[in-house]
Design a binder for these strands. Structure first.
Lengths: 136, 136
DNA sequence: CTAACATATTCGTCAATGCGTATAAATAAG
DNA sequence: CTTATTTATACGCATTGACGAATATGTTAG
């Protein structure tokens, strides 16, 4: 009965982390569930580009999505593989120390403080912390 | 005077880890400096392929090479960036727990025990542990 | 010098990836 | 229903990467 523990594809896992836009997205998610519109606004990248990278991360099992009306919220989920989970946690901690990543988070905070000032964020749902940010 | 701490390219670092052959190479290096001929023999892959992946890892600053006559020895070097070093160490530990990686290391041990049995390894220099395996 | 050996690089091909543009799909509002 | 809004996907194109085969480079032996 015990399901065959699928041989985790380490290379695919690292490939998912091997893109700056995806790292920026993970950095912005951190411990919160966040609406796509914020990601587009903060990163100042085209919406299809953001969406494609989110889909890539979703296929890699690193993030999960939840629909809320028109809005989609993304959050980080820890991979079932223990090694992958550790590396991912470590990577998220690493992101926190990176200058550019800190700047991204600052921009997110600013956008969250007054979403009204950002044309694209009128009435958008605020990011919300996730209970156990790093577990699936 | 203080050199500008080059903004570490995290995405390139992860890209270097995003290939199974390269992960297998890193796994075989582990704490030792190892001759290319063993890598080719153990992984049963074409020599140019191995050489190309080693060059990739070298450009990424993850391994270093030392020439010893006809032979080239490769070893892992820890990246200067602290976050990268932690992730790399973690990844090496992760590799140790992987089935397929363990099999590779077993094959390496066997080849080291009697290099004479492998046609390609006549007189090849044995791998040798590195003092401080994980520092540059 | 030449020959043999170990390793690196080049070349041509193919698949994968990233991008912008355009369009589709899903939902909400009127 | 139609329209607007939010997100996802399809398309075409350029770049990158991985591969095998062939070739080049570097070293040692004779």
């Amino acid at each position: 009965m015990a399901g065959k523990s699928s041989p985790f594809q380490m290379d695919l896992f690292f490939q998912a982390l091997g893109d700056n836009t995806r790292l920026r997205l993970l950095n912005l998610m951190g411990n919160r569930e966040i609406c796509v519109c914020y990601l587009v606004e903060v990163l100042e990248q085209g919406q299809p580009k953001i969406s494609r990278h989110l889909a890539y991360l979703r296929r890699a099992g690193i993030v999960a999505a939840r629909r809320d009306g028109k809005w989609m919220h993304y959050r980080i989920v820890m991979p079932p593989n223990a090694g992958a989970a550790q590396v991912l946690s470590q990577t998220l901690a690493w992101l926190k120390e990176d200058r550019a990543m800190q700047a991204d988070r600052a921009r997110l905070s600013k956008a969250c403080c007054n979403p009204a000032k950002f044309v694209a964020l009128q009435g958008a749902p605020l990011p919300v912390p996730v209970d156990r940010p790093l577990e699936s």
